[in-house]
Amino acid sequence: MRQARSYLFVPGERPARFAKAAASGADAIVLDLEDAVGPGSKDAARAQVCDWLAAGGPGIVRINGADTPWLAQDLAALEAFPHVAVMVPKAEPEAVAHVAALLPGRPLLALVETVAGLAHLRETACHPAVTRLAFGNLDFGADARIPGVAEVLDPARFEIALASRLGGLPQPIEGVTVELSDPEALRDDIRRARLRGFGAKLCIHPSQVAPVNEGFAPTAGEIDWARRILAALAAAAGSVVQVDGKMVDRPLIDRARQILGDAEPAPA
């Protein structure tokens, strides 16, 4: 079954939005206890997220960072929900190891948001608890003191894509697009991210979900090509295969299988 393409953030202090986010068509919702929640609302947000989870509501929980006074309470609260995945902000090896030790067996999404996180990324990607990498483009640009979040950060994206492959992880998750009134900006970001090896995107508004799901899906032409590759391979019975005048070798076969896997229905 294909990996999730769209991850929709919803503030943990806005419980009225939880069900709407879950019904938005996003493959996953991220119940945010970090950036979307002010210091004075952390306890209330945590309690509201726990109430939602206790009632069977879905969601990944973005916890507070290791450099904050709220992390310990977040982790203690999540012990009651062993099925819930956790997004680790400012993911660096020590922070990931700390969360994994206190929530053993928990799937972790590592959000790369700092220069130190990028410098030690391959260690993070190979941690057994980490199931996917995500790029926190806004925070990373600020930490790196690099203005802009588009092409100027592509070297970081390249490293994230490589680390994902090294760690045997799915294609990584692209960061957010903040322009909510510019659909073309979102489409451009999706197109560029896909070309750079990313397979999903963080969303900050429900209106972004459908374009993200569509933009990261294989095209009809890609699906047709993949089917013809595998059909020719099956018919060849071990002989050399050519499709569209090109010899079919292992990388093309792997790519064809990936495309058809990505074309499967969304995960439950």
Rank of each mutant, 00 (worst) to 15 (best):
V176N: 01
L162Y: 06
V178F: 14
P265H: 11
V209A: 06
G199H: 00
D74C: 09
G117D: 05
A47H: 05
P206C: 10
A125G: 08
D35H: 11
E184L: 14
G136E: 01
D27R: 00
R132I: 02
F81S: 06
R62P: 02
V115C: 11
H205L: 07
N64F: 07
A22F: 10
V209K: 01
L169F: 08
P147K: 13
P218W: 03
R17I: 04
L180R: 14
S239W: 03
A220C: 08
A263Y: 02
Q208E: 13
P39V: 10
V84L: 11
F216G: 00
I204Y: 06
E94A: 14
T124Q: 10
A144M: 11
A220S: 13
R192F: 02
V212F: 04
A210V: 07
H205G: 07
A26Q: 01
A226H: 04
W225D: 13
K201N: 01
R14A: 15
E222D: 14
R192Q: 12
A21L: 08
V130L: 12
F198R: 01
H98S: 10
S181D: 14
G40E: 15
Y7G: 00
A47L: 05
G215E: 07
V240T: 14
R17P: 03
L195H: 15
G245E: 10
K20T: 14
T131Y: 06
C50G: 03
P147L: 11
M87V: 03
G215W: 04
N64V: 04
G25S: 06
